[in-house]
Design a protein around this nucleic acid. Sequence first.
RNA 1: GGUCCUUUCGUCUAGCGGCUAGGACGCAAGAUUUUCAUUCUUGUAACACGGGUUCGAUUCCCGUAGGGACUACCA
Length: 508
Amino acid sequence: MREVRVRFAPSPTGALHLGGVRTALFNYLFARKHGGKFILRIEDTDQTRFVPGAEEYIIKSLEWIGLDIDESDLKGGDYGPYKQSNRKHLYTKYAMELVEKGFAYYAFDTPEELEAMRKKLEAEKASVQSYGPKTRMTMKNSLTFGQEQTKLMLQSGAPYVIRFKMPEDEKLVLKDIIRGEIKADTSILDDKVLYKSDGMPTYHLANIVDDHLMKISHVIRGEEWLPSLPLHYLLYRAFGWLDTMPEFAHLPLILKPDGKGKLSKRDGDRLGFPVFPLHWEDPKTGEVSRGYEEAGYFPEAFLNMMALLGWNPGNTTQEIFSKEELCNLFSLEKVSKAGAKFDPEKNKWFNKQYLELKPNEELAEYFIEDAKKDGVIVDKEKAAKICGLVKDRCHFSHDLWKESTYFFIAPESYNEANTKKFWKEDSADILRKAVEILNGESDFSAKNLEEKISAWIKENGLNFGKVLNPMRLVLAGECKGPHIFNILEELGKEESLKRIEKGIKVLC
RNA sequence: GGUCCUUUCGUCUAGCGGCUAGGACGCAAGAUUUUCAUUCUUGUAACACGGGUUCGAUUCCCGUAGGGACUACCA
């Protein structure tokens, strides 16, 4: 195989969504697998859709996920600039080349005229495109005007576009790495605009020119591009670049968890899960979207779950993969053909797996930060210890602190359902007795307390539930959490007794 | 509407002519347990349909039906 060079080529029109993340990821994995280069190219040929901050957001997102870029404007590289608006001068030349060779032509139709044609064809229920081999000779272009008039039009400064001249009637069989053979019939394809009246190329032209110039070996992109594959192939052919044309792989789409269609930002809002990697505030609408990062997902978990959406190494039941493993195992042949419905529930599970795998010291950092937000300063050792106690109950990094605030903040009230269930007539008496015992202990370690309290329970013919449940209720405010003796140890004698005594007062 | 792509449990998927169709998420039940969880065990549930090809089709081919994408001077 030739040197692998792949690119992720997003358009800076907003935050990077999950589909984009997955496309970037698969490009990255493919590059790493084959010792190739992963290139970031910004496709900003549509100036009307440019969103400030989007480019920076994309770069920051890739960074968070851990996809390091080999070539980009920021990183440098031999094929820059890597932003299409800065390559504008290049495209004109190539557009002209196609016109001269007879593969493209000037068109002068107004939007109204184009719309009229579309309407007319729709009314006739014609199965052809509005501007293609069957209709182009009825429109206003250099083909119908002839050389002289075209020249005059251009000289007069009339707005024009350059359109690709689709072959009349050719049956194409193209190759896609994931799907095999793709069939197309040029007679019903349209003469796409390659060069816009504002002097910018469209995606189609810029994409082919840049991929060629940047020596891209494999184009890995979303399935929404599959219908353009024939045009892109024809462009390579027109330029005479067929021998170095990249191979194509069209990734299946990520679909809504329920219902139908492509996953959109709306679905995330509606179903309560993030669709962007990082926090995003739309500068135009002011709309704020939560990201995976702030929702408490770990980048490794996020990467793992995205990798398995539409891809599977096969012949294994393994689901937890490190980035390195993924780089080793990845192959385009194992990418699924059909779209995958996004499952937020499974993502939670993935995150939990990673949370459990992480050492307590690492979790402590998330814990300390969240505690600080609530005005509680926790030292690292204690934070790590508590993370170890509560991590079983957590799915996200933020759960760590949420599940253990009572270690630091005494309960203001007691969970009603728990009180009803666990606070009995004799609870107060039992706890008063327990206070006496606890008061007599100078060693407040979980181990010692467990021994002493257990012995007392047995001697007096009580049972654990009758003692420990009410005690938990008054210590933590509700009946959940790690072993009660661990809670006592962390709270310490003074605080423990204070809470129990207060609980007796309030609940009696 | 037209074109192209696609189809295994509710979901993500394994399977690449012969399997009791496997795993995971979810859900349910049970076990463990002082609580909530975790963990463990078990259960639930799928080859869209109809034709071929073949000794034999989930697997290959063709239809039908679902689903998706595209159909902009957007990418």
